[in-house]
Structure formats: structure tokens, C-alpha cells
Design a protein around this nucleic acid. Structure first.
Lengths: 317, 317
DNA sequence: GCGATTAATGTGCAAATGCACAGCAGCTTC
DNA sequence: GAAGCTGCTGTGCATTTGCACATTAATCGC
């Protein structure tokens, strides 16, 4: 810490420069010091944080929390939105927007993006600016449902996103859920499916949501993939969350259950192997699931809000 | 107010320049824009306050003076800044910073803050750290002016502050000044206005400035609410200062004049009833007005500088 | 007191910045 | 369609800034 008199001098020079719009030479003349000295004082003022340049982002974030998440879970990046929103729908939309802006910054021409559809990723995709163009190849990473729930209609969304981004779509022409593990294996062996999944594994970026298996709200139930009783029993036996329709435990390890075997789509191991997996999730109730997902090592970037981030860190202690 | 996409662009460029230490040419190359364009974006970002340079003044206080103020006027707390600043603009900014730090310490999540806009409170609000978040409900406590003087644009400032704090804004949708007392009464009776004023009365904290009715500098004249002749005559008849656009006398009692009746906003009595009213004011010329305001009993916390504090104490003897 | 070492200060120049001016596209008006 | 207007965009240049290096002052050990 610098002493008070110097602090005062630094602040004074900084005020003359930044608030008084004087040039360094003017200040030097006014204070009877050399120009270089003023330059050095200004530099010192910046270094000592006597002057701070604050940038007001349309979406405000919490760098401190982000840094802790990055360190704690070995992430590449974390995004924690500062928000006063209490309404959960509004909050979700804000997070989706944050994630969309981030994705846009990531997607360069020729990028290959794998998408695991869920209600959160649906919102992220909606939040991507219609005029954003990047010629991206969009790949459907999980199979399709038989019925047309708008936020779970994977192939429609894949196409929509590809068109929005001005790129091409690669579909995973397969049901999301097979009747049993054997059938799932057969389906995965089909040329089109195998080929599509291979493409998914070659993505530069994957986008996933994280679920908490809550029987009341889980996409599993809404999509009719699992019953609420089934989820309850999984949770009791140690399952903590899901991502890309794969259920995992507290440690982020695949949870041994027949459901995981029946899903046709990218696996957690495959997600881990991708260069960059971006996960989006909010809600205090999801904190444990998110912490588990982060422990799996499959995620490189987490996009969430402050409150959830804090809760995840607590859980991760 | 700029739109979100532009705001984003400005913030991005500003971050690259100020945080990423890139030169304007580098940024131009990276974003495929011309250097001049980057220069102009940076300029716009500064003007639109998307980037703000915050100077941290050493905020040294005078506990002895503060204690005397507290005792003499029965305050909850007094803040008297020790400063060598001679330039009055600089001094005002330092006081604003002191007040802002204090407010930040006061504002907890869920707090309700009523603001009486004037040039001083404007500066206090500017000095609040953009990264300070508290989910505060901000309430406009005095009506709006017809023209757009930035430091008097109450509703814009209310919104800006609410956004900054990550909370919500409650507007007082009413003119500040009615043509006569009867019209003012009618306006006050309107459901929206009545409701807004009710909210203001339920605040936890109020922030006010104190004016001295000097015809040459008073906000009344600058805002076109009163003529300088009028102020002169009020002063001759015993008016000493104003706060929340209400004029009072040496004893801090409402000064009987038609102007007070025409103002739509929080009254001195209502301020007195609030749990905590924070007043910010500096300048030897304001000493008598400040002493009057303190005698009114409406103020719990005074934020000023050493010299003014000393002068107020002298006046208050 | 004197050389050695370190910190503070100033010189000179290349790089970065700010800005006046010119050019150009889109729009309105006649 | 010409003329005028408005709002963007880029060129060219003067000013301002950042910094390497030289210089001077201060501090210390002996």
C-alpha cells in the first residue's frame, strides 16, 4: 500500500489527466514537474489501482466468482452473470443471452458446433443474434424425440440454428431413446448414425445444459424419457444430475443405470474429449448437479449466474 | 440511451483497449474495422459512460469534527472529509466519492432507496462503483423537469441507478413543478403519483442534497424552477436553504412560500419520518443552509468536508 | 571520503493517438 | 434526375504518449 501523501498526488494527477482532460505536458507545467514524471505517476496510479477503468457491460459479470470457479474446477473460463433478477424465467433468458454472446465470440468461420438439446440450450440458441453469421457446421449430438415439443425437437433446432448461423446442419437421424441397451447398440452401429456421431466427436465446440433430475421439472419427465418415480429412485441411489441425457453421480461419473445405455447420443467421455465444451445452467437447485458435472472434467466453460456460482463453489468445497 | 448491441460493441472494444492493452490498430485488425472507427467507438464509449475512469481519492476523515457535528445536531453519523482540494469541482467529486462509499456500506439486498435529484446527488450516484450490486429498489422522490439537463433528469437517473445497483426503479411520473398549489394538489392525488409517493415514504434510506438558494448557483435557477429575483426575495424574508426542492428557514422549518406548495415530491416532514436520511453538501457558502437543514431534524447522516463542517458548527453555536 | 550500488530524473525518438478534412452513399426535395 | 442535406467512412498529419537509454542524485559499506 502506498502512503497517503503519494496517494493524494497520484489521484490529483490522475484527476487532471482523466477528468480535467489535460495533456501530460500541461500537468507537468502546472505542477512544475517533468513530463516523464507525470507519465510515470499516471502509470503508477493505474498500477496501484488509484485509477481504475471500469467497463459497463450490458451483461454484468462477477470476475471474482468467475476466477474462483476457474481455479476450483480447472475450467478454461467461467461466466457468472451479475443480476438482480428474481423471476426465474427472466434470469434464464439473461443467462441464455450471456451464453449466446459468448458463443458468438467463439464461433469463427468454419467452426463445428455440437448441440445437446434441452430447454436451456434451446434458449441459448434463440438468444443468438439473427444477424450473426459464421458459416458454422451445426451437429445434432443427441437423438430425436418422436413428438414435437418445441424445445426438444432436436433436428428442427439443428436446422434452425444452422440457418441462423449461415452454415450447414448435420443431423443425427436416430431416436433419442431405444427400448433397451441392445437395440441402442444396433442403432449406434447403423452407418448414418455412426457417421453422424463421428462428426459430433470432431466438433470444436459443444453446447450442453445441465439438469438436476428433479422429478417435477426435469426434461426427462417433460420429454417422456423417464418417469418421475424412476428419477426419484435414481436420485436416492446417488445420481445427481444429467447432461446430454446422460445421468451422472456426485463425482461426475456416469451413473450405472439402464437409461444411460438406451440413450443414443454423445457420451460424457466423448464430451470430455472435445476441445471445448460449454455448459449453461442456472438455479440454486441445480448447484449440486453443476458441481458434479464440473467434476466430470467434461466441461471447459461454465455459464451461470452469481447466486448459482456461489452455491456451486460451496458444494464443491 | 444506446441500444444493447451497440453497448456490447462499445464494451468489447473498450475492454480490448483498456483491459487487453491492445492498440487501436490491433483492435481494428482483430475486428476488421478501420482504426478511426475504433477511435470513434472508444470516444463514444467514454461519452456514453460505457467506460468510466474511477479515481480513488484517499478518503481521510476528521473524527473530532465528526463527533462535534453528531453531538451538536443529534445526528446518527457525520462524515467530514480531510482534503487539500482547492478546486471546487474536485472537492465535490471527492465528497461524492465519500458519500458513495458510505451508501454502498448501507445498501443491503432488498433495501429501498429514495433519491432527491440535484447536482450533488447526481455526482454521488456517478461515484457509486459500477460493480457494486445490491438489488436495491430505487425510488424517485421528486418530480421530473420538462427539459433534459443531465443532472436533473430524475427518471433517467433513477433508472440508471437502479440498473447500476442491479435492482428496480420506481418512477414518480409527475412534473416537479405545478402552476399553482391547487394543481399540485390535484396531481398529488393521482393514483400513480400517490402510489409512488407512498413508496417513497416507505424507503429505508433517502439521499438528499442541500442548496443555499444563491441566485447565482442554485439549482432552482439552473433548472428554471425559480427566478433569481424570487430567490433573492425569499432569502431577504428569512429563507436559508433548500432540500428536496423544499425551501426552509434558519430553524429548518418549511418556509412559507407559494413555491413549496407547487413542488411535487417528498416533503421535509416525510424526510424526517424516514429511518435514515443522508444529506450531502459542501461549500462554506452553504454552511448556514446546512445548519438550518440539520436543525430541521430531517437529517440523520451528513456528508461534507472539514472546512464546511467547521463553518456549520460555528453557525450552529 | 570514496567507490559501489541503487533509485530518481531527464533526453530523444518511434509509436500511438486525436482530429480536420475530404469523399461517398443514402435520403429528401424540387 | 439534379441539388442539397445528412450521416458515415477513411486519409493524412500534428500532437501526444510510451519507453529505451543516458544521466544525475542518493544511499550505503568500509
Amino acid at each position: 500500500m502506498i502512503n497517503a501523501a503519494r496517494h493524494e498526488l497520484l489521484a490529483k494527477v490522475a484527476a487532471m489527466y482523466y477528468e480535467g482532460d489535460m495533456t501530460q505536458s500541461d500537468i507537468a507545467a502546472a505542477l512544475d514537474l517533468s513530463r516523464v514524471k507525470i507519465y510515470r505517476l499516471l502509470k503508477e496510479a493505474r498500477e496501484a489501482q488509484v485509477v481504475r477503468v471500469l467497463i459497463d457491460w450490458p451483461l454484468k459479470r462477477s470476475p471474482a466468482l468467475e476466477a474462483r470457479l476457474v481455479e476450483r474446477f480447472g475450467l478454461e473460463q467461467a461466466l457468472a452473470l451479475q443480476t438482480g433478477a428474481t423471476d426465474s424465467a427472466l434470469l434464464r433468458r439473461q443467462i441464455a443471452q450471456l451464453a449466446a454472446r459468448f458463443l458468438e465470440s467463439l464461433l469463427a468461420d468454419g467452426a463445428r458446433l455440437s448441440i445437446c438439446f434441452g430447454s436451456t440450450t434451446y434458449e441459448v440458441i434463440s438468444a443468438i443474434r439473427p444477424d450473426f453469421q459464421a458459416n458454422v457446421r451445426v451437429m445434432q449430438a443427441t437423438g430425436s424425440l418422436p413428438h414435437a415439443l418445441k424445445e426438444f425437437d432436436s433436428s428442427a433446432l439443428t436446422r434452425q440454428l444452422a440457418r441462423k448461423l449461415g452454415g450447414e446442419a448435420r443431423y443425427l437421424s436416430s431416436p433419442l431413446l431405444a427400448d433397451n441397451a441392445e437395440a441402442a447398440a444396433v442403432i449406434r452401429e447403423q452407418a448414418v448414425v455412426r457417421h453422424a456421431l463421428e462428426q459430433v466427436r470432431r466438433a470444436d465446440i459443444a453446447l450442453v445444459g445441465i439438469g438436476d433430475l428433479d422429478p417435477a421439472t426435469s426434461g426427462f419427465v417433460r420429454a417422456g424419457v423417464a418417469g418421475s418415480g424412476q428419477l426419484r429412485s435414481y436420485r436416492e441411489r446417488g445420481a445427481i444430475g444429467d447432461m446430454a441425457w446422460q445421468i451422472f453421480d456426485r463425482a461426475g461419473q456416469p451413473f450405472p443405470c439402464e437409461l444411460n445405455g438406451r440413450i443414443i447420443g454423445v457420451t460424457l467421455d466423448e464430451l470430455s474429449a472435445l476441445p471445448r465444451t460449454v455448459a449453461v445452467a442456472v438455479g440454486l437447485n441445480k448447484a449440486a448437479a453443476i458441481a458434479g458435472a464440473l467434476r466430470s472434467g467434461a466441461i471447459n466453460v461454465l455459464c451461470t449466474d452469481e447466486a448459482t456460482a456461489a452455491s456451486v463453489l460451496e458444494d464443491g468445497m
